[in-house]
Nucleic acid binder design. Structure first.
Lengths: 105, 105
DNA sequence: CTGATATATGAATAGCTATTCATATCTATG
DNA sequence: CATAGATATGAATAGCTATTCATATATCAG
């Protein structure tokens, strides 16, 4: 039951990088859009109200850190979240935000 | 069982801000140091290998978003993590990092 | 091959942010 | 009060980053 909370500096950097990726509203919305099922770039752009170019730039970062995986289907490329931990974390935090909304003093 | 994953733009910004705070290695280490029990600033600075000034600057941000709470005891101020959700999220992600270390292809 | 659609990439930039250094405030003690 | 220790604050800056615009690449239809 005793949880390990002391991590090395390298691990802190690694972990912070994951959080940093979710620490931008545009990128977070992109990840959210791809959490449940694969979405193509233009759909992501439409649902997030971001330009396709910007979405593509962010997708590159999310791809590089393996938070999302892309698969080409014809002209389109579909992206989906890969990491179950990330899915859990985001889901939990979304729940946190949406639940504690009325209780915000 | 159907989890809410679509959030408003404002909520995305709010959520991203929480992640962004943890998205800096220095700040993440500070939060980690205060997760289990209250720590004073100089102790935090010592364990994180950061200057007291830098720690104090980061603490201000963490205080402002209510991730940490500070309490004065004599000359020292002790900080501790307030939000259980944040504790969970960080603990989960730490577990994620430390577990999947060997399996990193 | 041509044109059209979808995605990616590169450069340029404006705004932000982490860090440092200097200085101020707070608190206990003598 | 004066001094010392602990924390906070302010200014300055160097480096980063999100965004935009222009352009390139890829895929399919005809």
């Amino acid at each position: 039951m005793n949880k390990r909370l002391s991590i090395s500096d390298d691990q802190a950097v690694e972990l912070a990088e994951l959080f940093r990726l979710m620490g931008d509203a545009s990128r977070l919305k992109i990840v959210l859009a791809c959490l449940q099922k694969p979405q193509c770039v233009s759909t992501i752009a439409a649902t997030t109200h971001l330009s396709p170019s910007l979405v593509s730039h962010h997708l590159r970062l999310l791809r590089a850190t393996r938070m999302l995986r892309g698969e080409r289907r014809g002209k389109q490329v579909f992206y989906v979240a890969t990491d179950a931990h990330v899915q859990c974390v985001i889901t939990d935090m979304v729940a946190h935000i949406t639940e504690s909304e009325a209780a915000d003093s």
